[in-house]
């Protein structure tokens, strides 16, 4: 079998206990464990103690804060819960779509939203057993010093592969973190950095406690498109989140603003720029889809860090962006 390394497991009952436990050296947070345990079995990390959030009930609630006009999703909510939650469906339907497209139902019953936004970056040269990696001498992210994706590269370009992150950035979401120095809030667009070895600004010892999505009263259409070879289980090969604010609540209405976020490029999701051209056009105008797809294709260059050839994935990015917009139009 693929064995886990020898380690201790702590099961705190409260967030405070968890934060305290994380201060001991060698400790590592575990939530659903669907990403961490394979990584540990592959010896990508070597913690001496896992601090499990399985017993911390306070992190699983989903509430609408009417005063602050925010949807507050506890980081411990499973992706199945997020996908099926009526409040999330009402206020952030594209997040439901993304959560429901993660891996398989079995993974989603276990994986948490907090874990998903902190999902480690992935690369075909990294997410392998330690034996496999030893055959290529490791890489920047594992035991080596070189990059096999970008020859000569000094920076790790492992891919941000979360399905929920592009959507949450497109919705202007932020994260609540609690650490030994107290509580802080960070906008998700600022949370990720272009370094595959450490791609978030989360400090050691900090726990993500909630994902906060601002409520909007204006009309909006938002969607998420994920391309994989199989219909389930796989990580995305391309991922695009789209969010269009409209002047009226119909797809023929003029677009007031557009946000498009693309994942599975490097370690940081890319917010597509220069979308001003579609403002004023309608979503149902085929030119809108063509313009957005063209911007995505121009600005996003997938790397050979996940399966399938990068140039092909770049073409698919254009296709799936266009289709995602067509799907929004078809939904009305």
């Amino acid at each position: 079998m693929l064995r886990l390394p020898r380690l201790d497991v702590l099961m705190p009952a409260t967030l405070d206990e968890a934060v305290l436990a994380l201060q001991s050296p060698g400790s590592r947070l575990i939530a659903g464990g669907t990403d961490l345990l394979p990584n540990l079995k592959h010896r990508l990390e070597s913690p001496t103690m896992l601090v499990s959030l399985a017993g911390v009930r306070e992190l699983s609630t989903i509430t609408v804060d009417d005063d602050a006009q925010e949807l507050v999703i506890g980081a411990g909510a499973t992706l199945t819960t997020v996908e099926q939650c009526p409040q999330v469906r009402a206020h952030a339907p594209s997040l439901c779509s993304a959560a429901g497209l993660v891996a398989s139902p079995l993974i989603r019953n276990q994986a948490t939203l907090g874990g998903n936004v902190n999902l480690d970056t992935r690369c075909r040269y990294v997410n392998q057993t330690d034996f496999w990696r030893s055959a290529i001498g490791g890489c920047i992210k594992s035991e080596g010093t070189v990059c096999h994706v970008v020859p000569g590269g000094k920076n790790c370009v492992a891919a941000m592969s979360s399905d929920c992150v592009p959507v949450l950035i497109s919705l202007g979401a932020s994260l609540q973190l609690v650490g030994p120095n107290g509580r802080r809030r960070v906008a998700m667009k600022d949370y990720y950095v272009a370094d595959g070895t450490r791609h978030t600004t989360r400090e050691d010892g900090e726990v993500t406690t909630a994902v906060i999505v601002p409520l909007v009263s204006t009309p909006r259409r938002a969607g998420y498109s994920k391309w994989t070879v199989r219909g389930s289980i796989d990580f995305p090969l391309t991922s695009v989140a789209l969010c269009f604010d409209l002047e009226r609540d119909e797809v023929a209405a003029p677009i007031a603003g557009a946000t498009v976020v693309v994942g599975v490029l490097g370690a940081k999701p890319r917010v597509v720029t220069r979308l001003d051209e579609v403002v004023g056009k309608s979503l149902s105008d085929p030119e809108t889809a063509a313009i957005v797809a063209e911007r995505v294709h121009r600005q996003c260059k997938p790397l050979a860090n996940v399966p399938y050839e990068a140039p092909y994935r770049r073409q698919m990015l254009r296709v799936h962006t266009r289709r995602a917009i067509e799907a929004l139009v078809a939904d009305g």
Partner: peptide, 27 residues
């Protein structure tokens, strides 16, 4: 597969199907 791909280890935990190969026993 022992890493969450195949589903052969599926059991129900409190009624929900989950992967026992990716569940710490102590949890």
């Amino acid at each position: 597969c022992d890493k969450g791909d195949c589903g052969a280890c599926t059991v129900q935990i409190d009624g929900l199907p989950r992967l026992s190969c990716l569940t710490l026993a102590l949890a």
